[in-house]
Each structure stands twice: as structure tokens, then as C-alpha cells.
Design a protein around this nucleic acid. Structure first.
Lengths: 144, 144
DNA sequence: ATTTGTGCAAATCGTTTGCATCTGA
DNA sequence: TCAGATGCAAACGATTTGCACAAAT
């Protein structure tokens, strides 16, 4: 996986949105975008950072995650009230969510489509449509 | 609005699921199912109860909401990490969610359809598909 | 030098839990 | 009577916030 380009890319994208390319932000950006699509929670990214010798505080991870989201680099996904996931894939796509393990993953390609787009009531407009396909382990022998 | 029938109905349904039809549960059931479809949070229902001279504690509201959900009387909807909504409409349908006001409401009829149901990976099976159409106030003059 | 970001710890907020009391069957 | 339900307040866990210090331009 040839890269090194991402760093520069992130750097520019941060500048574009007025975010200073600080040590932490670049490092977190590397972790987030240097490994393909990821679905992380603040805690997961924090652990990942520490594991990779990038000592950032949880608070900074939260800040960064939100700043990146606002900058359009990440997409926030709410599937469970207990945790907030951030998806590095900002293109239009949907998710599988396993309540069993709390895992979130993309629905391959665009296997899912929507028909009959409803009209938003009042003076509202649709900003986005989230589809979450909830799954569980098959109960063939549910004795997990 | 002719009713009174709901109470009995709730009573039986509670019994069916092994839940004692207590004063609080019946009262909350009335509030929940006596006014058509509702999308409430624990706090909303609690306020509603107090307002209607049904003094229940927040804890009991939470308990009841979860018990009703487990009994199949309610459906839990996660749209925002900050609040959990409970929908009195347990049939298959989807939602509009206005991030502006934090309001949740049903998509009329089944204006929305899904095409290309994906296959669940591994040994998993789909339990349910949630579609949330996020909307905001039209930015005609966004100076709210 | 100035401004913006970071870390820590305390503060929030929705939700859950423990336990003593009360209620329904 | 007795298991199950309720209320209260303390406990919780994820996220946010305030403020002193550090880093980037």
C-alpha cells in the first residue's frame, strides 16, 4: 500500500478548512485515512493512537473527530445511543450494524437502493438518508 | 375521540407478556397509545405523565419503556446519541428526523422502499432495517 | 508574539442501578 | 403473604468544558 501522499493531502485539506495541521491532527489523520475505510469511536481511535506512540488525550480525539467531521473528512453515524461512530467513507453508502458485537461496517457497493423518496414536510429539505441494516448472529445454535 | 378500549387492550397485552398491569404501567400505556402514533423520549413521557396527574418516577418510566419495548408494544429508535426515542408504531416504517428541532416523525405510508437487500455477511441474519431521512429547515432565510 | 490547539480534570447529561418500601394477585 | 413493582438517590459512561500550558504561524 503506497502512501505518504495522504499526509500531505490531509495537511492541505486541513488548511483549506482553516484547521492548523498540528502534530496530533496529522497523526490522527494518518491513523484514520491511512488504512482504508474505518468506523471508529473516539475511544477506539484514542487507543489506536496511544498504541501507535501518538500520545493524544481523549478530549483532543473528540475535538479532532468533530473538527474533521465538520470539515467533511468524516461522517458521523448514530446507530446506538451509547456510542458515536465516525466513518472515514464520506461517500453516500449505508451500514450493517451488529448489535451482538457492536460492530459497524459498510454495505458493499450500493447493494441497497431507495425507492419512493418522500417529500420533506413543511419548509424542510432532506439533508441525508441513513440506512442501517441491523444484524445478529444466526441463531443456529444461539448459545454464544 | 372515543376510547377506553385501549386500556383493556393494554391490560391484556401486558398480561400476555407476563407484565403486571399496575397503576403506572396502565397510565403510561394510556398516554402512549391513547393518542395515535407517538415518538417519545423517557423525559417527554415523564413530563407528560406528571402533567396528567400520574406521578411516576423517571426510573419507572425508563423501566416501563423498556419493558413495553421488549413486549413488542414499542419500538426503540436511535437517531441521535443524546436521546432514545420510543415509537408507538411497531409496524415496519421509516422516519424523518429534524436535527434542527430534534423531532422524529413517520414517513407517510410506505413512500420509501428498499431495493437490493444485501446479504448479511458471515453467519448473520438481518433483524431489521432502519431508514432515517434527516431533514432541516429550508435555508430560504436561514437566520433562525 | 499572538493565536490556536492540547491535556487534564471536573462538570454534564441521559440512563441505569441498589435498596427499602409498597402494591397487586 | 409474597413476588414483583416503584421511588429515590447515588452510580455510570460517554461526551463536553474550563483553564493553564504548549505549539504553530
Amino acid at each position: 500500500m503506497p502512501q505518504g501522499t495522504e499526509k500531505t493531502d490531509i495537511c492541505s485539506r486541513l488548511r483549506e478548512t482553516g484547521l492548523r495541521p498540528t502534530r496530533q491532527r496529522l497523526a490522527l489523520g494518518e491513523l484514520l485515512f491511512g488504512q482504508g475505510d474505518r468506523h471508529v469511536t473516539a475511544e477506539m481511535l484514542h487507543e489506536d493512537a496511544v498504541r501507535n506512540k501518538v500520545p493524544v488525550s481523549l478530549a483532543t480525539v473528540y475535538n479532532t473527530l468533530h473538527q474533521f467531521t465538520q470539515a467533511g473528512l468524516l461522517r458521523e453515524v448514530s446507530v446506538d445511543r451509547s456510542k458515536t461512530y465516525f466513518d472515514t467513507n464520506v461517500t453516500s453508502h449505508h451500514h450493517f450494524y451488529c448489535e451482538h458485537s457492536g460492530t459497524l461496517f459498510d454495505v458493499p457497493d450500493n447493494q441497497i437502493g431507495i425507492v419512493g423518496l418522500p417529500v420533506a414536510p413543511d419548509g424542510m429539505e432532506i439533508t441525508r438518508i441513513d440506512v442501517v441494516v441491523r444484524v445478529t448472529k444466526k441463531s443456529t445454535n444461539d448459545a454464544t
